[in-house]
Structure formats: structure tokens, C-alpha cells
Amino acid sequence: MTTKLTAVRSGALTTVQDAGRPGHAHLGVPRSGALDAPAMRLANRLLGNASDAAVLETTLTGCALRPDQDVTVVVGGAPCPVTVDGRPAAWGAPVRVPAGSVLDVGAATAGVRSYVAVAGGVAAEPVLGSRSTDLLSGLGPAPLRDGDVVAVGTPAGPVPAPVAAPWAGPPAELVLPVRPGPRADWFTAAALRTFTSAAYRVSPHSNRIGLRTEGPPLERAAAGELPSEGMVLGAVQVPPDGRPVLFLHDHPTTGGYPVVAVVPEPALAAAAQAAAGTPVRFTPA
């Protein structure tokens, strides 16, 4: 019988995520997938899952789950208190949750997104090869609501012996390496200097689509509209208000605002964990 987790408390925004569905951008399908991919992979490895097995991605406030059979989970990513039936349990390491007990993934004490991996993986129905929730286009399972039931797959084998896990801490300052983007020439030389020297902060309006920033606006050298063009993950797009937006995994596949720079993918995990108000610097890669 399939193991099921019931969402006792769904939290602010809890979604199913795996490695996403790259390869469909030409159809207008965002890549989606876990924003802090290294955290997802590490949590899965600690359980003996495939590294891209589907997990739950929480946002700031965690979630609480009640399994109907004994399960083993790892809570990682953003640090947070973890309890089982109110008793403190390990963060970042395998935790046994007996049938009927409540696993509570608390509010993040730092960072934004905690990951709840379960031995066997989350078994939501795949869409275009992925179980990820895509918040831009609504593909994949809907965000978790209170009372929702999440199916769990069959574990491939026993949970490996615990090992020290190299979890990255959320950034106190988000330093983003940038390479020139395809439309850097749409900006004045002064704007390009501002971009890589000024202090920005993470805007509270950030989401899985993009990390928005607050700070000095970037002035364009070229006026007018850019015909729609393909957008890469990590693109730094500059909308008319001049504040850079870093595209994360649910970004639109095409867009009409100029991309001033591109952040390499390995640097995006830290962006996923940068809470609103975190200082941001863009530095030449």
C-alpha cells in the first residue's frame, strides 16, 4: 500500500519540486524545479534516494506532515526547528517519523526555503517528465493546502548510515557573479558601472519566478521595446523601473525586457535562500 503524508499545516507556500522539466522552453514551458538544487540533492542522497527524487519545498514558514506509515525524512536547505510530535528532532539528517505522528518543519531561522525529502520520494503524477510545481504556468501539482495528501514512492533500499553533510548556510550577503548579457549594450556605461558597484537588497516581492531587487535603477542607452526573445535561467532582466530581476526556475521562457547580465547556475542556490532585505552585490565573473 502506498504511504501517504497528510498536510496538517501547509505553510505559506509548499510545492513539490524535482529537477524540473528542461527541454520544453520552445513550447513556452518554464524549466521549474527546486530553487536550491544542491539542498534537494543532498537531502535525497542522505536517504538513499535518486538525487533528483521529488521533495517538498517550503517557503519561510515550513509545514507539518502526518504519515500513515513509518517514514524516514530529511529536512534541509534553510535551517529550521524540526519536531516529531513536539519533540525536537534532527535538522539536516535522517529522522524517523512513526505512522500517525506529526513532523513539524518550523519557520526558517535563516534563509527562505527548507526541503523535506522522504525515503522513496514524493510520488506526484509527472507532467512532461517532472513532478515539479510550476507557479508561472500552473503545470504540476498545485501548491499544498491544509488536508492535502501527498503520496510517497517505494524506497529503493535502506536509508544509508548517517554521514556529516555539507549544508551551505544562507547568505548574509548575496554576492552574484555576472557575465555580460545579450543586451548589455542597451544600458549606459554609467548604468553598467552602477550595476556592478552599487548596493542592492532583495525585494520582498521576490518569488520562484524571479529574485527582485531594490536599489539604484539602471538607465537605458536604448529606448523602445525589445522584440520577445528567449530567456535563460539566471538572466538578469531589467524592467522599465530599472531594478534588476534575477530569473529563477519558474521564469518565463521568452521576455521583452533587456537582459543586462547572466548569473551562472551554481550561484543561484544562494539566491534561493536570500531573504527579503538581504544585501546583494553583482560582481563581474
Binding site: G138, L139, I209, P239, D250, G255
Partner: peptide, 14 residues
């Protein structure tokens, strides 16, 4: 599904 619309950062042509 109405789980989202092209909002954040999507350009005028998007």
C-alpha cells in the same frame, strides 16, 4: 489551471 500568470519580470511582448 490558473496557477499563475506571466507577471514577474515578463516583458511587454511576453
Amino acid at each position: 489551471t490558473t496557477g499563475g500568470t506571466a507577471a514577474a519580470g515578463a516583458g511587454p511582448e511576453a
